[in-house]
Every structure is written in C-alpha cells, then in structure tokens.
Simulated assay, not measured.
Amino acid sequence: MYRFFHRVRFLFQFHKSIPFMKDFFTTNEVKLITKILFAVLIIGYIALPFDLIPDFIMLFGIMDDATIAILLLQLMVKIAPQSLKEKHNLYQ
C-alpha cells in the first residue's frame, strides 16, 4: 500500500524529475546502451498508438500512461549511479 501512495506522490512531483532525466542521459557514468534502451522505451511508448487501456476510456486511459511513465522513471532512478541520486536527492 505504501508503494501505491509513493507512486501517486511521485506523479505529482514529476516536473522535478526533468533535471534528473537530463543528467541521466548526459552523464558518462551510465552506459550508452542503457541510455539508448531507455530512450527507445520512452519514445516508443509515446510514439506508438497502442495503449494498455485506450485513452478514450476517460480516467483509466490516462492512468495507464502515467503508470508506465512512473515505472520507467523509477527504474531509471534505481539503476542511476549513486552520485546522480545524491545530486537530485533521490533515494529508494
């Protein structure tokens, strides 16, 4: 249950994650293949018209997009180098 509330809180603070994402993709501490993989996943999910739940189903269609974004960002934080986590005060 704690994870659910943590993810909801994280969603409302998503705008604070943009500097982290910029540093994640520009640092030399993260392998190039990892950066490419995340870029493909992010761009692919945005570009492909297929959703787990179609967006025309009001609230649930948007929630699945937000959930995927949160999960990808949390995975990025999880595998980020410790120096990047400390710089952005991200601990998991």
Rank of each mutant, 00 (worst) to 15 (best):
Y2V: 05
Y2R: 04
Y2Q: 09
R3T: 08
R3M: 09
R3A: 08
F5A: 02
H6F: 08
H6M: 09
H6A: 12
H6R: 10
F10R: 01
F10T: 02
F10H: 04
F10Q: 03
F10L: 10
L11P: 00
L11K: 00
L11A: 12
F12M: 10
F12Y: 11
F14D: 06
K16W: 07
K16M: 12
S17N: 12
S17K: 10
I18P: 01
I18W: 13
P19T: 07
P19C: 11
M21P: 00
K22S: 03
K22M: 12
K22F: 14
D23T: 06
D23E: 14
F24H: 03
F25K: 04
T26G: 00
T26W: 07
T26P: 00
T26E: 14
T27K: 06
T27E: 10
E29H: 04
K31Y: 06
L32K: 08
L32E: 13
L32R: 05
I33F: 07
T34W: 02
K35C: 06
K35A: 09
K35Y: 06
I36Q: 05
I36M: 11
F38C: 02
L41F: 13
L41G: 00
I42S: 05
I43F: 15
Y45D: 12
I46E: 09
I46F: 12
L48M: 14
P49R: 13
F50R: 06
F50Y: 15
F50G: 01
D51P: 00
I53R: 03
I53V: 15
I53Y: 04
D55I: 11
D55P: 00
F56Q: 11
F56K: 10
F56T: 07
I57K: 05
I57H: 01
I57P: 00
M58S: 07
M58F: 08
L59H: 04
L59Y: 08
F60T: 03
G61Y: 07
M63Y: 03
M63G: 00
D65W: 01
D65K: 08
D65H: 05
A66P: 00
I68L: 15
I68Y: 13
I68Q: 08
A69C: 11
I70N: 08
I70F: 11
I70E: 13
L71N: 07
L72S: 04
L72M: 15
L73N: 02
L75Y: 02
V77S: 02
V77N: 03
V77R: 06
K78V: 03
I79N: 11
A80C: 09
A80F: 04
P81L: 14
Q82C: 02
Q82R: 09
Q82T: 08
S83N: 15
S83M: 09
S83T: 15
L84N: 08
L84Q: 10
K85P: 02
K85M: 12
E86L: 07
K87L: 14
K87H: 13
H88M: 11
H88P: 07
N89E: 15
L90W: 05
L90F: 09
Y91L: 12
Q92W: 12
Q92D: 14
